[in-house]
Amino acid sequence: MNVLSRLETRGIPYLRALFQSSSIKYLTLLAGVASLGSIFGMASDSMYGVSNQINLIAYWHIGLATAAAVALTVTFLGCALYLATETPFWEFLAHSSGEVGFLMVTLTLVTGSVWGKVIWNSWWEWTDIRLVTFLVIWFIYAGYLLIYSAGGDSASLKRITSVYGIVGFVTVPLSYLSTRLWTPTFHRPTTGNPDADATITVPALLLSIAALLLVYLYLVGSRVQLRELKRRVNYARRDRTLDDHAMGPSQGGD
């Protein structure tokens, strides 16, 4: 049995069971409460030499950016698996993860702008490579969702959208590596950078990231289940229509 066959026979049932598990909902709630408690109870509000409560938004900003990266990576993998197998589940997973990822990219941009106004006295800065490349991600995945929504049930357009989702993914690692590949205006690397002057309370940040990853998992699971339910309903309606057409002539002959 090859890798794709194992994914089909083991991976899909496992993911369905995960998405249907009620424990995800409770874990998401628990992690969210713990994250809020840690951010407002222990997180530092002093960053880049500025002490302000608005700095606490950084913990959601970074968490949202991390969850967005995970979501768009899942979209990339789902698109690749759909092209390889044409199994509807992978298409549903790719699109659902793209929807949630796009939402998180949007919220990352919004929270970053609010935070940046306090820290750098600017809502936006076109010279900052991270901001510009992240905006490119937003446009790329807005295009992905628009193309998908225009396709309906067209199999050919689903394949085109999947190719788009694979090619467009190159913008994601490019944006996340941009501050190391080019000189940033604002977003200087903090990991592995001894000159970084941002103060982050690590436990609060890790809790925020965990909470937002669980929010992502809950949302994408709900979307996949909804898509599969809609597909079953559509099949049931189609079968009923076919049965009605098949019975119609015979009843008329009587």
Results as ranks from 00 to 15, higher is better:
T171G: 02
F169H: 13
G151Y: 12
G143V: 00
V163N: 01
F139H: 08
G168S: 04
D128H: 04
S154Q: 02
G152I: 00
A150R: 14
S162I: 07
F134K: 11
F139G: 07
S162V: 14
V163W: 12
T127D: 15
V170F: 09
I137C: 13
G143H: 02
V170R: 02
L145S: 10
W120S: 09
G152M: 10
L135K: 03
L131A: 03
V167K: 11
T171P: 10
S162C: 08
G143K: 02
S156I: 10
S156K: 15
I147W: 02
D128F: 00
V170T: 03
S156F: 11
L157H: 14
L146R: 05
Y164P: 00
V170M: 07
S156G: 12
L131E: 08
Y144Q: 12
V163K: 05
I166N: 09
G152D: 00
L157N: 02
G152R: 06
S122K: 08
L157E: 10
V136L: 11
T127Y: 12
W126S: 07
I166P: 08
D128I: 01
K158E: 09
D128Q: 00
S156Q: 14
Y148L: 08
S149E: 04
F169P: 05
I137M: 01
W120Y: 03
I166L: 08
I140C: 04
A142D: 09
W138E: 14
T127M: 15
Y141K: 05
W126M: 05
R130A: 10
D153R: 14
I129V: 13
W126D: 08
Y164Q: 06
Y141F: 03
F134E: 15
D153N: 15
K158M: 01
A150N: 07
G151W: 10
I129E: 01
Y164G: 07
I160C: 02
T133I: 13
S122Y: 00
W138P: 12
I140S: 01
F134S: 06
